[in-house]
Each structure stands twice: as structure tokens, then as C-alpha cells.
């Protein structure tokens, strides 16, 4: 694909007359656009001719294999993916809010703790954190993550998302105008009461669009539950697809799972965009 435009390049300069021409800018623009279309068509023709369509369909789009994915694709895999993601999101948001408040605290050690946590867990690959969660029981004999496999998956996602949510929420808290806190304090509210009734609700409104994007990222990260060595009733989409692909020796289930992710992520991304636009208008 990458070498396609290069081989077609010579056709480019042949189209528009070289520099210093008397062509009007409009004409030059039209020629340039024409050349771009020619390149595109050549590339498409090459792809169509060079691809082994039959082989591709055999491996990635076999309906009989795809049919085997149902109904567990939705009743087990998608359901579990959503359990892991929502769990990680809820606990991550609570942890993130706590970290954001610590980060803005007037007590210096709280700020340090928050900064250290955020820097560490934003800097580590999510996979590494899942591997650590997997080895937790051997580090603390007798310790078990509550909730079994669900608990482990949710814990891994919580650790990751809390770090990101903390930064988002901190930005949200700081985006609430100072006058709001002043007005609340002037009415006799304590600092804590003013935070709870006035500042935090507004901060949450501000961060809803970026948080929706974070939810999508978390949904994708939930695929890492694969590395926790889960049993069949706890599989999420990726492991489900991978397992089925192994048993059928065919990549179709992975395509099906991919489409299932998109079924959720694209509407969410669209929703985030709309929320963002609405907020921009409201301000």
C-alpha cells in the first residue's frame, strides 16, 4: 500500500505544468485534484487485483463459523466486557475523584501521594498492571481479591482508570470559576459543603465528554482480562473471540468480536462528540 503512491508519483508532475506556468490557481487546483483521484483509482485497482478474495473470505468471513459465536457472543462475552468496564469505570471514578481532591489538597503529603500514584499508573502499560494483579495472591499468601475473577478484572481496570480520571477530574475542578466557591462560602457554607453542593457537581458536568472517551478506552483495555487466565463463564469479548478462533482454526470469530466492540464504541464516541458540542454551545 505504501509503495503505491510512490510508483504513481511520476504521473503527478506530468499532469500540472511545472513551476512558473501561466495556469490560473483554480486550474492548477483542479489538475491537482484530478491527479489525486487517479492515484486513488490506481491503488484500488491494484488492491482488487492482488488480493486473493477467496482465501480472505475463507479465513475471515465464514458465516458458518460466525454462527457458532451466537448467542454466547452477547449473553456471555459482551455481558462480561460490560461488567468489567462498568465496574472499572465506577470504582476508577471514585478513586479518581479522591485522588483529584488529594491533588488539590492543602495538606502537602496528600498532594505527593496523589502525584506519585498518578505518575506511576499513567506511565505503566495496562497489561503490566494486569500481570501484577494476577500475581497479587502469591505476593500476599491468603489474600484474595474480593469478587473472584470479576474482582480481579475490575481491580486491574480500576487501578488504571483512577489515574486517568484523577487528572481529568482535577482539570474539571479547576475549571469551575473561583467565584462559585466564593459565593458558596459567602452564604455560610463550609469548604466541604461548598465542594459537595456547588463545585463537584459542576466539575462532573464539565468532564462528562472527556470521560465518555475514557470509558471507550477502558472498554478496549478490558480485553487485557485475557491475561488473567479466566474460565469460560468469565470470558470477555477478546478472549471469547480468540478461543473460538483457536478451536475453529479460523479468524472469523475475531472479526465478529471486532464488530461487536465497534457496535458499542462508535455510538459512544458519537455521543461524546455531541455532549462536547452541546457544552461548547452552553458556555
Amino acid at each position: 500500500m505504501t509503495d503505491q503512491p510512490i510508483t504513481a508519483e511520476p504521473a503527478g508532475p506530468a499532469g500540472p505544468a511545472p513551476g512558473g506556468s501561466r495556469l490560473s490557481p483554480r486550474k492548477r487546483q483542479r489538475i491537482s485534484r484530478g491527479v489525486q483521484y487517479v492515484i486513488l483509482i490506481l491503488a484500488l485497482v491494484a488492491v482488487v487485483l492482488l488480493t486473493n478474495w477467496k482465501n480472505l473470505a475463507e479465513n475471515f468471513a465464514r458465516f458458518d463459523v460466525a454462527a457458532q459465536a451466537f448467542p454466547e457472543l452477547f449473553t456471555v462475552a459482551l455481558k462480561n466486557t460490560i461488567i468489567y468496564t462498568v465496574g472499572g469505570f465506577v470504582f476508577g471514578s471514585l478513586g479518581g475523584l479522591l485522588l483529584a481532591l488529594m491533588r488539590l489538597s492543602s495538606v502537602r503529603p496528600y498532594r505527593w501521594i496523589a502525584v506519585i500514584y498518578i505518575e506511576i499508573f499513567r506511565g505503566l502499560p495496562a497489561l503490566l498492571i494486569f500481570l501484577l494483579v494476577f500475581f497479587l495472591p502469591s505476593a500476599f499468601p491468603g489474600f484474595e481479591v474480593p469478587g473472584g475473577t470479576y474482582g480481579q478484572g475490575i481491580l486491574g481496570l480500576t487501578i488504571v482508570s483512577a489515574a486517568y480520571m484523577a487528572e481529568t477530574l482535577r482539570a474539571g475542578l479547576q475549571a469551575v470559576p473561583k467565584g462559585q466557591m466564593e459565593a458558596a462560602r459567602s452564604l455560610g457554607m463550609s469548604h466541604a459543603r461548598a465542594m459537595v453542593s456547588v463545585v463537584i457537581p459542576q466539575a462532573i458536568r464539565i468532564v462528562i465528554p472527556p470521560t465518555t472517551n475514557q470509558f471507550v478506552a477502558l472498554l478496549k483495555d478490558s480485553s487485557l482480562v485475557l491475561f488473567l487466565g479466566v474460565t469460560s463463564q468469565y470470558v470477555e469479548l477478546t478472549k471469547f473471540g480468540n478461543d473460538l478462533a483457536s478451536t475453529t482454526a479460523n479468524a472469523t470469530p475475531i472479526m465478529v468480536v471486532g464488530l461487536t466492540y465497534l457496535l458499542v464504541t462508535i455510538p459512544l464516541g458519537y455521543l461524546a462528540g455531541r455532549l462536547e458540542k452541546r457544552q461548547a454551545k452552553g458556555r
Binding site: 470559576p177 467565584g179 462559585q180 466564593e182 459565593a183 458558596a184 459567602s186 456547588v198 457537581p201 459542576q202 458536568r205
Partner: peptide, 11 residues
Amino acid sequence: MVFQSFNLFPH
């Protein structure tokens, strides 16, 4: 206290 910029709670 009444402020120049009102500071009503918008939510």
C-alpha cells in the same frame, strides 16, 4: 454578599 459577576450556581 453580592458579586459583580453574580456567581449564581448554574447547575
